[in-house]
């Protein structure tokens, strides 16, 4: 795989097969997750009221590619995962009702890229959402937020092939979806950061579908509370994460305190962009898989996993050093031992 630079995707990100580097990172994340799951009880209390689908929490999030659904597997494991996902997505309602925990387990093991577009819609219930009908009207209307949205279009995935061309297809669809949402939800309007989530959706599906998923993410996954003008939910998440770090990684918490390294310095964008600006895109896609299935709790888990993985490195750095690495998307490569 010589195409693991996440800036080199074409319309549909053509690099969603994780590279060896990504796999190593994923494996590390998985390992850290196990540690954190061991203390899952304290996390369970966080599970959002806004998103009621709760998994059994007995399993780990498998972040490596999905190949271990044993009962469906033969020699050609890869083929079978596709067949299985084909069946699940074709008979979604049935699977979702009758074999819910199985489907969730499957999601944790990885949605194959080919199915992401449809499975993301199915997971959040956007596939039969009536808001899709409104989309065409929104596109024709004028939004008060157009200027501010425009200002950020070229600053969203500026190095990604699909979005980098000025006024190209990617930038135009990004603008359309953001504008449509600002009309759909006047209270939130437009908030910086949301464009990265819309961009990630547009890498998987057309505008109208991306819009429907965005509306679900906003309404049912607390994202609109995150983006509201007061940003109260973001403040709450910062507070919760800080307390979780104190409880689960106490020595890191002490170090952060002594360095005046505040949670908002590193974690604001984690919550506001769901890791799309912090991690390589294939990893961000995997997080989105599980986020759509399990909700905001997943973001806390990934955050704690990253901090647990990076603990030894972070403990050696002062505030400036920690800030630098936490803003660098490839910082997390340090965590897999390439420093």
């Amino acid at each position: 795989n010589n195409n693991n630079n996440n800036n080199s995707g074409s319309f549909h990100v053509n690099n969603n097969d994780p590279s060896p580097g990504d796999l190593a990172l994923l494996a590390k994340l998985e390992e850290a997750n196990r540690l954190i799951e061991a203390d899952a009880k304290s996390l369970n209390s966080l599970s959002g009221s806004g998103h009621s689908r709760k998994s059994s929490d007995t399993s780990q999030i498998s972040l490596t590619s999905g190949t271990s659904i044993s009962q469906e597997r033969n020699e050609d494991g890869e083929e079978d995962i596709w067949t299985l996902w084909g069946r699940v997505s074709n008979d979604w309602d049935n699977f979702w009702k009758k074999r819910n925990s199985f489907v969730r387990e499957l999601v944790r093991k990885g949605v194959p890229h080919h199915f992401r577009g449809i499975v993301w819609q199915l997971l959040c219930g956007a596939h039969d959402s009536p808001v899709k009908k409104q989309y065409a009207d929104y596109i024709k209307a004028t939004s008060a937020c157009e200027k501010v949205i425009r200002r950020d279009i070229a600053r969203t995935y500026p190095e990604h092939d699909f979005f980098k061309e000025k006024d190209g297809l990617g930038q135009e669809s990004l603008f359309n979806v953001m504008k449509a949402y600002s009309l759909h939800d006047r209270e939130v309007g437009y908030c910086q950061g949301s464009g990265f989530i819309v961009g990630l959706l547009l890498m998987q599906m057309p505008e109208e579908e991306a819009f429907a998923v965005l509306v679900k993410l906003m309404q049912d996954y607390k994202m609109r509370d995150m983006y509201k003008p007061t940003m109260a939910e973001l403040g709450l998440c910062m507070y919760q994460l800080e307390n979780l770090v104190q409880e689960l990684i106490p020595d890191l918490h002490v170090h952060f305190q002594s360095q005046s390294f505040h949670t908002s310095m590193y974690a604001s964008s984690w919550f506001l962009t769901l890791f799309t600006t912090a991690l390589p895109l294939p990893v961000a896609c995997r997080i989105m898989d599980v986020f759509l299935s399990e909700g905001m709790e997943v973001i806390f888990k990934v955050a704690l996993a990253l901090l647990t993985l990076g603990k030894e490195d972070l403990l050696c750095l002062d505030m400036e050093g920690m800030l630098k690495v936490s803003y660098e998307p490839y910082f997390f490569l340090f965590l897999v031992g390439w420093n």
Partner: peptide, 30 residues
């Protein structure tokens, strides 16, 4: 305000370079 060039000013000063490929600043950077 958003988009006035704060990040570009800072990058010019710190790295003596200019680029149009910055992402919007989400929160705070330094």
């Amino acid at each position: 305000d958003s988009g006035v060039g704060k990040t570009c000013i800072l990058f010019r000063f710190s790295d003596d370079a200019f680029t149009t490929t910055f992402i919007s600043t989400i929160g705070i950077d330094f």
